[in-house]
Design a protein around this nucleic acid. Sequence first.
DNA 1: ATGAATGATTAAAC
DNA 2: GTTTAATCATTCAT
Length: 468
Amino acid sequence: MDEQARIMQALGGVSLAGHSIQGGMALPPPHGHDGIDDGRKQDIGDILHQIMTITDQSLDEAQAKKHGLNCHRMKPALFSVLCEIKEKTGLSIRGAQEEDPPDPQLMRLDNMLLAEGVSGPEKGGGSAAAAAAAAASGGASDNSIEHSDYRAKLTQIRQIYHTELEKYEQACNEFTTHVMNLLREQSRTRPISPKEIERMVGIIHRKFSSIQMQLKQSTCEAVMILRSRFLDARRKRRNFSKQATEILNEYFYSHLSNPYPSEEAKEELAKKCSITVSQGVGSTITVSQVSNWFGNKRIRYKKNIGKFQEEANLYAAKTAVTAAHAVAAAVQNSQTNSPTTPNSGFQMKDEEFQLDSAESKNTLLTNMFTGSSGSFNLPNSGDMFLSMQSLNGDSYQGAQVGANVQSQVDTLRHVISQTAGYSEALGGNTMYSPHGLDANGGWHDTTTPSAVISPTEGPGSVHSDTSN
DNA sequence: ATGAATGATTAAAC
DNA sequence: GTTTAATCATTCAT
């Protein structure tokens, strides 16, 4: 009967997933031993000794001894004596220790695991299914794509938790069965009431549930760590790629008078930024990230305009090239083409000037406006600004090119105004307020005349709907 | 190591 | 819902 051996092994210590059950698991000593006077009868002493040591014997030995024990002539007498003693000592389970009070900490852990979706009903199948589902719905919701990684990891934890829990449960049942068998067997040689067995089972279950609590505890910890690492995105903040920042800055400085991109514009910016960065490790940039960026940018720009002047000039000049080119194209177009078909001229590919004239025009414009020496003062910046405005508002009113150019007017305006105030700002006086910012520091509503919606856009531009 | 830059979060206001 | 202002936490540059 190898069951005996297995019980012995089980009693020696149960090892589960690294946790070993030690101490407290041993069977309680048979009751009433200390009630017997020493050396009452040699036979009894022998039998007791055999009972005590039977578990140490090998299988065959034990089998033989047990047989001998059961056939011993004194056995019935000893049994009744043991029964009597046991009754007298009255150790027969008092109160059965009431039902274990629900441990508040255990309840807390249970609740948390349930709330985290670790111990609750399985939703979404396996980890792969969950991840796939998250990825599938990613296009619709930013949340799920952001948290798909988190969910995958959570499912992992959940799986580990469940398998471990099952293992514990199984081991607990196995162990209980073994102990019960052992006790039943022993009940033939010593008196054991069903109550006692019940109590033993209770003890075993308590031991195992304390181990389960450890498991729950560590699972909770794991979930907490996961939470803090994944849900708090600040922990894994990555800087945007150079290109993405450039795109965002371009938009910002070319819409300086009203740097509040519409939802649509944000989406487009996010798409653009994501495309340009798609190859790299850099995460795709979401609409909410664009919103964050603009929020940060606005407040930081406003807070310390001086610090952003260089950058502003850079981007303003950069887009000013586009604007200038657009204007030039428009002018040329209006001169050479029929005003009724301005589009054909305006849609002239940007690659042209980006290839052959971007460099020269860029430096030209930059030098012209900002003055490479840094001391160049634009005496008639206001005139230039006005001329620009009239260019846009009057000469081409009604023509769609004017609408398109409008979005660049901010840029030119900015370059001009920034240039005008450049030395002052560098001197530490940041009192000067650039166009688009009112005295209170708010972006006033520059009433852009019907020009905000541009039906024809250059390849590099983002749909700019400044209404709203 | 240290401070600046920067993306994200938060509360409060609209 | 969005925006502002303050703040946090990380990354980058020195």
